[in-house]
Computed example of a mutant assay.
Amino acid sequence: MRLPLTSRRSHHRSVCVLLSALLCSGLACAQASYRIATEGTYRPWSFKDAQGALQGWDVDIANALCERMKARCEILAQDWDGIIPGLMARKYDMIVASMAITEQRRQRVDFSDKYKDTISRFVAQKGTRQDVSPSALKGKTIGVQRGSIQANYLSQNYKNSDLKFYDTPQAAELDLVAGRVEYILGNMVTYYVGFMKTAESANFAFVGPDLKGGLLGDGNGIAVRKGDVELLSKINAALAAIRADGTYDRITAKYFPFKLM
């Protein structure tokens, strides 16, 4: 027996509702939403523009990952020395802030696949000797960002130097120019596209060799809370996707005249 037209329409709507319920059971169809921490004072990786909006390589990478994960994301600035505690306190879900992958940090967070390499360098006045070994820098003043891998490296290896710790890399650079420290140690790429491009750097140069590995990390990764396997899997898949389709290289070319990995 054929159903009346109105009954057929009602039956059709009921079937659609049932199918939708089956396909979107639980939260499967809800768009994922994540809060992402970056630093915000680490040009060109992350910084605030004149309007106070976050910009930079890490910010662009974070947005590209969210697009691939089809997720709504809020990116917020967090002081570096509190960035891991904030993750552990669930203030945000991941850290996209050029964080070096170290064994010490692995004890507190889980890392994604590496998404760029890290090389550290000393900067000092031009003409400074190239030997930057701990014995050569005994008694020398060295500036470094507090909470960074470089700070940990210096604390462990340069116990006979006078170490000065700063909240931002820029603060250390200012004291180098002012003569309050003799050396600074930090990310080579950051110095290359930042401080070394300024007029204030005219009398300064890189000294010593490239430094990497060990306490200085095995490249950079995106940090999530320990055991967050599902999110980590999504991040790694999204990282692979933006590298495969050229998005990663396009973002990198926007900020640097060389590859990061």
Rank of each mutant, 00 (worst) to 15 (best):
L174Q: 15
Y153V: 06
S148E: 09
P169R: 00
F165N: 02
Y153F: 15
I184R: 03
D175M: 05
V144I: 14
N157T: 11
Q150K: 07
K164C: 02
L163N: 06
Y166C: 05
S161A: 12
L185R: 01
G147F: 08
K140D: 06
Q156V: 11
D175V: 05
A151D: 12
G186E: 07
L185M: 09
A151V: 11
V177R: 02
S155F: 11
T141K: 14
N152H: 15
Q156W: 07
V181D: 05
R146G: 03
Q145H: 07
N160H: 13
N157A: 10
T168A: 09
I142C: 02
F165A: 10
D162V: 12
Q170R: 10
S155K: 15
E182R: 06
D162E: 10
L176R: 00
G143C: 03
Y166D: 05
Y166H: 07
S161E: 05
V177M: 08
T168Y: 04
S161Q: 03
N160E: 14
G179S: 13
V181F: 09
G143P: 00
I184W: 01
L174N: 14
Y153P: 02
Q156P: 01
L185D: 01
N187G: 14
V144A: 06
K159P: 00
G139V: 05
Y153K: 08
T141M: 13
D162P: 00
L176D: 05
V177N: 05
E182F: 02
A178Q: 09
L154M: 11
S148G: 04
S148C: 13
A172W: 06
Q170K: 09
D162R: 15
G179P: 10
I142D: 00
S148A: 15
A178W: 03
T168D: 06
E182S: 09
V181P: 06
A171H: 06
G186R: 11
G147T: 05
I149T: 15
G143N: 06
S155Q: 15
R146D: 14
I184Q: 03
K164P: 00
R146S: 15
Y183P: 01
I142E: 00
A178D: 02
Y183C: 02
P169M: 02
K140V: 09
Y166T: 02
Q150S: 14
V177I: 10
K140C: 13
I142P: 00
K140L: 12
K140Q: 15
Y153C: 03
G179T: 13
I142K: 01
Q170M: 13
G143V: 07
L185T: 09
A151P: 09
S161R: 05
T141I: 01
L163C: 10
Y158M: 12
R146M: 11
L154F: 09
A171R: 11
I142T: 07
F165D: 04
K159W: 00
I184A: 03
D175W: 03
Q170T: 15
Q145K: 10
L174Y: 08
N187R: 08
A151I: 01
S161N: 04
A171M: 12
R180P: 10
T168N: 04
I184G: 02
G143L: 03
Q170I: 12
